[in-house]
Design a protein around this nucleic acid. Structure first.
Lengths: 227, 227
DNA sequence: AATAATATTTAGGTTATCCTAAATTAATTA
DNA sequence: TAATTAATTTAGGATAACCTAAATATTATT
């Protein structure tokens, strides 16, 4: 399996294409370029190269965006598994705070061995989710089902348990933990503002209430509870 | 400190120049090329570039070999510290066998953060030596003194405690542990053969004896005991 | 449907790191 | 010391991954 994994650059492309195609749509060049912090021309070139590898890692017809082939999908899941296992490892074993693990995992994911991956997974008890609640593909590269509902879909009076928060913005993660928004927390919507989408919520039935906007609530996945 | 560390290629040059200049002699291009698995022309070029960085990392006059500058020496020690800390971590925390850690450490040493280095060092109790007995520079980058005597310097009847074995050859490491040659073991020389340098030894006063040649004994450092 | 706006690709160029092979310098031997 | 051998450097090139800017295709708007 190791020898099938291509270089770091391509691994990053695979990860981002995977994320961008989760909605069923192909990933487009510009969005990919933005995520990778590269210029569109560079991405266009590399996509072409990835489509010509043997086996091809992506499906691509000119101007029509890009999708992962089965081979590309496997490799993407392998990288994602490593990333999330490493994040979990850094928090649980080395005591990192959850806002400091993403960057470190982004570097480590490309260079650790299968051995390292297997050892930390075993030490952690084959975890199914990262500290941010992101699902970890199994060692057979099966991805757990995605969560359906975001916090943004709740309305006044409803409550829910937080399942997953976005992992890559340290400032946001520090803010979320400061208001108690961590996987497992129960949030109750005191008020849903229909025009701007803001939610006023309490966490774990506490006294403090917080107003949180759509850019945040639309990226937090929850399990809805009866209300 | 982090921003002073140059890229992976240069880190590897620094490490090898450090090792090759321990005897007081400058490192020469061909030896360096061999260690780095590159062609001499490539090394010559890169040495030149490293000498022109600001601050320069190496001293070099044409045809006269290369030495580290104080800046280069610090960086070399930083990389060596990381390498040996990571080896220790892999053995002590993740349960690797000592023959499997070198390669993994060679990749990890270039990408982990100061944070990672500090956390594993603290978790391990600021270790002074790797599992192979190699000294670990302190966080202030002070290198413990080198060991003076190798196993090859013992003669018939002498005995000694093993302090350090070479870390990078997995096959050799498996052989060494199979005969009990690990740091802390006591070896007694039953016979020293003056022509070929072979030593016949027992380990920890056991029954079995082993004949070990110069290529091995000259790379194992020991503490001589009274004989 | 024609035009304007946007997205994508292509063309030509840069830099880092490697290579081989030729040229040069240093070291060794006759 | 001259000639030979060995080590080192230089010259010229290759490749991967990036860039900018121009060209082209698609999509949206009038």
């Amino acid at each position: 399996m190791d020898q099938l994994i291509p270089n770091q650059t391509i691994q990053d492309y695979l990860k981002h294409i995977y994320n961008l195609t989760q909605n069923g749509q192909p990933a487009n060049t510009n969005t990919l370029a933005e995520r990778l912090d590269l210029r569109p021309g560079t991405v266009s070139e590399m996509i072409n190269k990835m489509a010509k590898l043997e086996p091809p890692l992506v499906d691509h017809q000119k101007y029509q965006g890009v999708r992962l082939t089965p081979a590309g999908g496997k490799m993407a899941l392998k990288v994602i598994r490593r990333h999330r296992l490493i994040e979990t490892f850094l928090v649980k074993v080395l005591g990192y705070s959850w806002d400091m693990v993403h960057e470190e995992a982004c570097r480590m994911e490309h260079i650790v061995s299968d051995e390292f991956e297997a050892r930390i997974a075993s030490m952690l008890g084959e975890p199914s989710h990262s500290p941010h609640g992101e699902p970890i593909p199994t060692s057979a590269l099966a991805m757990p089902p995605f969560y359906e509902h975001t916090l943004a879909s709740l309305t006044t009076g409803q409550y829910a348990t937080i399942l997953q928060v976005p992992d890559s913005d340290p400032g946001l993660l520090r803010y979320l933990s400061s208001i108690g928004f961590t996987p497992g927390s129960k949030v109750t919507v005191l008020n849903h503002s229909p025009f701007d989408g803001n939610l006023m919520v309490t966490v774990n039935d506490g006294n403090a209430s917080h107003v949180v906007g759509l850019p945040i609530t639309s990226k937090i996945y929850v399990k809805k509870m009866d209300s």
